[in-house]
Amino acid sequence: MEHSFSLPNSGHNYDAKASKLGMWLFLYTELLLFGGLFMVYMVYRALNPDAFLIASFNLNVWLGTINTVVLLTSSMTVAMSITAIQKGNSKLSLILLALTVAAAVIFLVIKYFEWGAKIEHGFWPGMDHFTNLPFGEQLYFYLYFFMTGLHGLHVVVGMVFILIVMKKIKNGSQNKNKNQLLENSGLYWHLVDLIWIYLFPLFYLIH
């Protein structure tokens, strides 16, 4: 809409810094969302240390480690794709983002097989095997499914976010000079990685 006078500090201007600040603020809410779950985890682990230990033996450390490496690698590729676009190399940026999405898919596939194996053995809440477990182990598996499930959801969201950005890079609306959306999707992706960095030792590495 045309109007004759426009403020220098208008809210309708493109402001990369505002959008970056907004993204960070949103990440804080995500951190605290998982933070609430970590608090629950900490309390129940403190109350049931042995049950958590025994229950954790059911997880496959190596699959967890592979997934950690996969996510860390994807974090690197998304960070590099930002470097690429800032240097004006959109093509390289797209390739790196495609690698990131591929890593996300690998992560989810591995997660799918992990969950599948657990459910096959009846660890899903409400299943026979689950109901016969001691309370502490039930809590462990409940938290395991809840937290990795919520994290998996974030992986999917991050993936969609990156795919949208890829489309925008292709049509040129994200470019050398204007790339805050890519940076924000990168920030989001790093957060997904960051949370996994804590989930991994808390669930897989109790020994």
Partner: peptide, 11 residues
């Protein structure tokens, strides 16, 4: 604050 909108009107 002397501006014409919030930072993210759509949000």
């Amino acid at each position: 604050l002397g501006t014409d909108d919030v930072a993210f009107p759509r949000i």
